[in-house]
């Protein structure tokens, strides 16, 4: 039976856990008792970390036939989790002491943590974005935001001569101008809180009591723009977050690698062959 593309991850996870358990058992039987097992886990850890980091480089040379990025990412994720096992074995199940090794472990934890965060974001945010709709390319968001604002402003102004009253325009200036002028409600969108939009729509609904038919029609169009602008903010918030976690993951990775290399030098210089 062919396994569906969307359930393959479960199969992969199963084999990963199985392989990890087998490896851990093998390690316990054959390696853990070796006098220099910690050196071995350390080198393996460093090698894996370098390979994991090379993924960043692979993305910069898409024209070479270096396996698919999908394959790389799968390896990245599973090998990344595997380093966690290695790391725990390497520190021998005890919290590191000392400033340097403490920093090293902290860096590892941050890189690992940001990686796990990134994985969770990458696996959950796309569905949320799709469900919400209003698909948009991140770079065009300011342009679209401007067009929404201009359309909303035009509508608000247009209603003045028609209704011979500035109610809608005043409302726009007071309540909506700020909303349309930039990205709003970043955190609420991130955590799927819908109250800001509902509040705005409620205000519009309240205002409708005091409007004539023409103005109400304008207000309906403005409300539509408010919804679209809210969707745009939603995309801005989530898409930005999908990009921002890498701002921690990638720089810290290089810090971690530098610390690791210094760690290797220090260990070799100071251990004097101790086991």
């Amino acid at each position: 039976m062919r396994i569906s593309r969307k359930t393959q991850w479960a199969v992969r996870l199963f084999f990963f856990v199985l392989a990890s358990v087998l490896l851990a058992l093998w390690f316990k039987e054959n390696i853990a008792a070796l006098p220099r097992a910690t050196y071995l886990t350390g080198w393996l850890l460093l090698t894996l970390m370098v390979i994991l980091t090379v993924y960043n480089g692979r993305k910069k040379i898409p024209f070479l036939p270096l396996a698919t990025s999908k394959g790389w990412l799968q390896f990245h994720i599973y090998a990344g989790f595997f380093t966690l096992l290695l790391f725990v074995a390497h520190i021998r199940f005890r919290a590191p002491t000392g400033w340097f090794e403490g920093s090293l472990a902290l860096l590892y934890a941050l890189v690992m943590g940001s990686g796990i965060l990134g994985l969770i974001l990458s696996r959950t945010f796309p569905k949320r974005l799709t469900t919400r709709g209003g698909e948009v390319i991140f770079e065009t968001i300011p342009v679209i935001r401007r067009s929404f604002r201009e359309r909303a402003e035009a509508l608000a102004l247009q209603s003045i001569p028609e209704a011979k009253a500035s109610t809608v325009a005043d409302f726009y200036a007071q309540e909506l101008a700020g909303f349309f002028s930039g990205p709003r409600h970043f955190w609420q969108h991130l955590f799927e809180v819908r109250s800001p939009l509902n509040r705005l729509l409620k205000k519009i609904e309240n205002l409708n009591r005091f409007l004539n038919d023409q103005e109400r029609d304008v207000m309906r169009q403005i409300a539509d723009l408010v919804r679209q602008k809210d969707g745009l903010d939603y995309h801005h918030s989530l898409q930005l977050t999908l990009k921002l976690w890498l701002f921690a993951h990638i720089p810290l990775t290089y810090s971690l690698l530098i610390f690791s290399v210094v760690h290797v030098v220090l260990i070799n210089a100071f251990s004097g062959g101790a086991r």
Binding site: T130, G134, V136, Q228
Partner: peptide, 17 residues
């Protein structure tokens, strides 16, 4: 809001780079 919002219009005549 169950339904997907429509994609907003933008100038698709040019490549995004």
């Amino acid at each position: 809001m169950k339904e997907q919002l429509p994609s907003p219009d933008f100038n698709s005549q040019a490549y995004e780079r």
